[in-house]
Simulated assay, not measured.
Amino acid sequence: MWQVFVLDVGHGLAVVIKQGNSAFIYDTGMAWQESSIAEQIITPFLHFHGISDVKGLILSHSDNDHSGGMAYIIKNWNPEYVISSEDLHRSTRCIAGQTLTWGALELEFIWPNQSVPRAYNPHSCVVRVIQSDSKQSILLTGDIDAVVEWILVREPHKLSSDIIMVPHHGSRTSSISQFIKVVGPDVAIASTAKLGKWSFPNPSVVERYKKAGVAWLDTGSSGQVSIHFYSTNWQVDSLRQGKGQHWYRQMLRKGVE
């Protein structure tokens, strides 16, 4: 079994992928002068779940709400891999076509095509995490926009995933219909702040996913979202749904079963 946790960090993003007592972190949430999401939320979460080894830290791009806690995670958890689409000191570059094997999981790096001196939204490191045997998968998209999505849909076989982290918190500048169709997810999850100043997610984006038959969850409404992957199925739970309420999927799609 492996698990993916989309933490409730307000406006920003922090995702923990757990396999045994080891984890990959995708984005760290924001930092401020006195502390950070990495210190206040991610680290206690890791300890609570018995994670003793942060195998890797993937930074989608350099905005504070995504990478503010980078220094804290590196200093306190010493990850073997620090992966970024930005040219950071002693980091591994996130470049399309690269892969990384981590236990039973494969990390496929899909975007960008080259690293940059400073990574903005369109340079976000896009990663598909796939379970080698069952082919269950989640697509992590950072803050890519519609232009990047149009580029990516040219190679649809690289995108197909069971679950998608919604690009740019559900902004109207992302999640074009063709991108949703090519990814073909069962569930879309957006990291949002409840009553946040940016008013994410945009209602038209939510409707776009629902019209495509995709179940929608966002942390602003549902709190932390947890995905539990088993050998033949997976289950999605959200903190504010209450005990016993969850979104469940048998592995009947894509010829897996």
Rank of each mutant, 00 (worst) to 15 (best):
W2D: 10
Q3V: 05
V6M: 13
L7Q: 12
D8I: 00
G10I: 04
V16T: 05
K18V: 14
N21K: 15
I25C: 10
D27W: 04
D27K: 03
Q33S: 14
S35E: 07
S36I: 04
A38N: 13
I42R: 08
F45G: 14
F48V: 07
S52I: 11
S52T: 15
K55P: 02
K55M: 11
G56F: 00
G56Q: 02
L57M: 07
I58N: 06
S67R: 07
Y72Q: 08
Y72E: 10
I73F: 07
N76S: 09
W77L: 11
W77G: 10
W77K: 14
Y81H: 03
G97A: 09
G97L: 09
T99R: 15
T99Q: 15
L105D: 11
W111I: 08
W111P: 08
V116M: 10
Y120W: 06
C125F: 00
R128F: 00
R128G: 02
V129R: 13
Q131G: 13
D133P: 08
S134R: 07
I138R: 04
I138G: 01
L140C: 03
T141N: 13
T141M: 12
A146N: 10
V147A: 15
I151K: 15
I151P: 04
V153R: 15
H169E: 10
H169F: 01
S171N: 14
R172G: 05
S174G: 06
F179Q: 02
I180K: 01
I180L: 05
K181F: 08
V182T: 13
V182P: 08
V183E: 05
D186W: 05
I189L: 09
A190I: 04
A190S: 12
A190Q: 09
S191V: 03
G196L: 07
K197I: 00
W198S: 08
F200H: 11
P203A: 02
S204I: 02
S204N: 02
V206R: 14
E207C: 03
R208V: 05
R208K: 12
K211F: 11
V214S: 10
D218F: 00
G220H: 01
G220V: 00
V225A: 09
S226D: 14
H228G: 06
F229G: 00
F229W: 02
S231K: 15
T232I: 04
W234K: 07
Q235M: 09
V236H: 06
L239E: 15
R249C: 12
R249F: 14
Q250R: 01
M251T: 11
L252H: 06
L252D: 08
K254H: 11
V256F: 10
E257Q: 11
